[in-house]
Amino acid sequence: MRQISCELFSNTLKSLLFETQYFIPEDVLENIKECYINESDSISRDVLNNILQNAKLSAATKLPLCQDTGIPQIFLELGSYVYLNFNLEKTVKNVVNIVYNEEKLRSSCVSDPLIRKNNLHCYSLHVDIVDNESLKVSVLIRGGGSENMSKTEMLLPGTTADEIKNFIVDNVINMLPYTCAPVIVGVGIGGTFEQSSLLAKKALLRNIGQRNQEKFYSMLEDMIKQNVNLKGCGALGLGGRVSVLDVFIETKPTHIATLPVSIVLQCHSVRKASKVI
């Protein structure tokens, strides 16, 4: 058994939470630059230019990339041969509070969904047990605007690949005008109701251009991206060449009677980072 200390875990999580608020990942930034160079629509071009300027300014000034500093969604891949000699939940809560207070990140959560008194920092924590001796910590910061553009539908098992493609394309096109496009589309197909939405979320952690290993799904990813971009929604949905930077599909075995499909849109302010301890 390998022991990972509270200090090592806390410091890792702290640096990921810090990094995500001020730095757009390199793969996303490069892709947005490419979109900017190739864009001919004047509004989209101006928007993309300002997105790039915003990334520069945030990195330099440490003003958050987006005022919605979101809910940190923390995904752990915990090796079976790793021993944590501390309370994981308490530690995560503590580190989130420290970083959000120290960095003056917005308290975007209400303690009760109906009474809605704005007074705290929230997070979500998902742990997968994997067969190794390390701990992978991934952080995805999700603002409310992006989170609202999510959908899970229980389709019938006989639904064809073409129908699923159309279902995803139609839903993405309907949600796009509300988002800070260009977006990344995360898709989860299969599993149970809650597993499919988790798959869609985890799909967002992939790097731009990284395809599903199954040829069938990688082709589906490309087709969805192409079909949506052909609609010409553009940056912020105001018209232009690119509204989707990439599409990532993840799948899981499912019940003979079900076919859950989840779609999650990630705005251009992609705040994600991972580290293996």
Binding site: N50, N54, L57, T61, P64, L236
Partner: peptide, 13 residues
């Protein structure tokens, strides 16, 4: 009017 969504550091200026 629509302004630059997701550009909070920029709009601060």
């Amino acid at each position: 009017v629509i302004t630059y969504g997701g550009c909070g550091a920029l709009l601060n200026q």
